[in-house]
Nucleic acid binder design. Structure first.
Lengths: 135, 135
DNA sequence: AAATTTGTAATCAAATTTATTACAGAACAT
DNA sequence: ATGTTCTGTAATAAATTTGATTACAAATTT
């Protein structure tokens, strides 16, 4: 199972980018996703840590983008919400006495690393603004 | 959590491709991965269904490649062991009354579909033989 | 001061994956 | 033919991960 962090974060940012002047509350954002506001606030914390949004506590608080959606790429979001894309590993440590077992994870690492580079290259070229325009 | 099917299957095939003449048992294969033989047999069943290996029951049974490793691509393996690569979805159905909630999954689908095409294109070009040579 | 919202911790529930047990049936060797 | 070994497969249990929920302190505005 893959966590929904990327999707939730992108959903948040899409909404913030639709209403760039307003502070939107975690409750409002959560109701668009139909999830618990606490999950939204957790992703807000992450976004804030990386200076992508700013937030305000207290009455009429909420969050808004800290920079223009033209200057936020999907790769920025990918990097802060996703470890790396993999096609999986065998959970157990393989047998080091077997030449294949001994090297399989290194070789998978290389493959997955290449895949991640490609994905990053693709996501780099898509800005939040472009993504948001499709709504 | 991502399942280890792709990794286990590739590990199996790498071993079979190292010993192309022999029928290797699920017990032998499992001991290289340090996992339960039943898991290996499950992937063997899948590989057999797609005519990538052949297997023999009974004493001295096991499995061997059904075609040359030059004619098996990592994309073949990917397609039979992995649904699609995604960066995740929000688990709950989003709010259809929100223009973003209403379209977010379609737009994520498009993005992920593109990513999968890229990955397939990359994996198509790598044969099992090439992968196996790195051991 | 009251109301509302973030920030965060702690705990629960649900879903998924992996491990294990069990055993029938097949194939081979002697 | 009989014992041995291996696949094939189902059923279940254990482990892990993710998401949901509850709770409440601290902050900010009116």
């Amino acid at each position: 199972m893959i966590s929904g962090k990327f999707a939730i974060t992108l959903h948040i940012l899409t909404l913030l980018s639709k209403y760039p002047e307003e502070y939107l509350s975690s409750d409002f954002l959560a109701s668009s996703m139909n999830i618990n506001p606490v999950l939204v606030r957790k992703e807000m914390a992450n976004l804030k840590k990386h200076d992508i949004i700013e937030s305000r506590e207290g009455k009429y608080g909420g969050s808004k983008l800290a920079k223009a959606p033209e200057h936020i790429s999907l790769d920025d979001i990918f990097k802060i919400t996703f470890e790396t894309v993999t096609l999986g590993y065998c959970k157990k440590e393989p047998n080091p006495k077997c030449p294949v077992g001994n090297k399989i994870n290194d070789n998978l690492d290389k493959l997955y690393c290449d895949i991640n580079t490609d994905i990053s290259n693709k996501l780099c070229k898509i800005t939040l603004q472009e993504f948001t325009q499709e709504f």
